[in-house]
Design a protein around this nucleic acid. Structure first.
Lengths: 165, 165
DNA sequence: CGCTTCTTTCAGAAATTTGTGAAGTTAAGG
DNA sequence: CCTTAACTTCACAAATTTCTGAAAGAAGCG
């Protein structure tokens, strides 16, 4: 207490959430730093933070921030913006954009499908193994189509519940 | 060549597929050994292999097989069966069961939801950050319901295309 | 029961990954 | 232009993960 400016919310509570949510992301396969940076952005009121702010809250070096942000922007979970008239950069989580990116493991699906197609033809479409792989392939193709439809339904649902926010 | 029994298929082609498919799984976050073991099982005609067979094809120790199989059974991607009257164990991929397990990241979703709920209440449902997290939470809840319905549609679709196999 | 075959556990060597400090790069502002 | 603030890249030390050999643990079969 008696610390500089009124923050309006308990930094410790924020940090606790950030770390616990990041831990879940890590467990699901995300690297530690991207996970922590992402969780921090998600729990910021503005939905965006500068490199320095991230470094301070998470106690990590500028290099670590840079690496994490590079990953997050590549996967479209975070976007970067320049503050006009400043060398300072802001990293932003786009509210609804990021989980769309999450479901957009489409690239991964595509590669799986490619590998499976190769498997079917190299092992022989008439062999038991080939048939099993053809079915697996069909499943992924099915999922791919369904996900698009699902996201459309989500947008409708979202509008009903949250408005056009 | 001039090797023991007729294998009926090119071991090198099989191995090539196994490694390339395993590589995709690794890239998507699976550990190397589970990925390789799984790919090997998937491309076997019987849909099952013994520990020794796996060790030989993948050139790994029994310990590595054991560890990989433990992971795969825990995640329900593979099941184990005892060959009757033998200490030998067979590991089997259940054709249609395994990708259902894949979509069953339900446990993960549940934990994310738990963490988000905590975030909403600890940061305050009325704060911008709290609202953002509430929306994210709603998304995951939505997805959870949709996935179940999607799998049901898949089973119908599958029956039409592949029969009751 | 004891022998044998298969599987699991465990400690540690080897490889990989991670995060840092420091140097390098870019661009704003005088 | 030169200075300086900010971000990025890079080499390396530290931490973590991964896989193995060896020993221990089950379970069929004589």
């Amino acid at each position: 207490m008696t610390e500089s400016k009124a923050v309006g919310r308990d930094p410790e509570a924020v940090s606790k959430f950030v770390e616990s949510f990041a831990a879940q992301l890590v467990e699901a396969g995300m690297q530690r730093m991207p996970a922590r940076v992402f969780a921090a952005l998600l729990s910021s009121d503005e939905g965006s933070m500068t490199s320095a702010e991230l470094g301070e809250q998470l106690q990590i070096s500028p290099a670590a921030v840079s690496g994490a942000v590079r990953y997050l922007t590549m996967t479209h979970m975070v976007s970067r913006e320049r503050e006009p008239g400043s060398r300072r950069e802001r990293y932003r989580v786009h509210g609804d954009q990021w989980y769309e990116a999450l479901t957009n493991r489409e690239a991964i699906l595509k590669r799986w499908e490619g590998a499976l197609r190769e498997g079917v033809s190299s092992l022989g479409a008439e062999t038991p193994a080939g048939r099993r792989m053809a079915e697996t392939l069909a499943f992924f193709e099915f999922v791919e189509g369904e996900v698009a439809a699902m996201m459309e339904r989500w947008r409708v649902h979202r509008r009903q519940v949250f408005g056009d926010g």
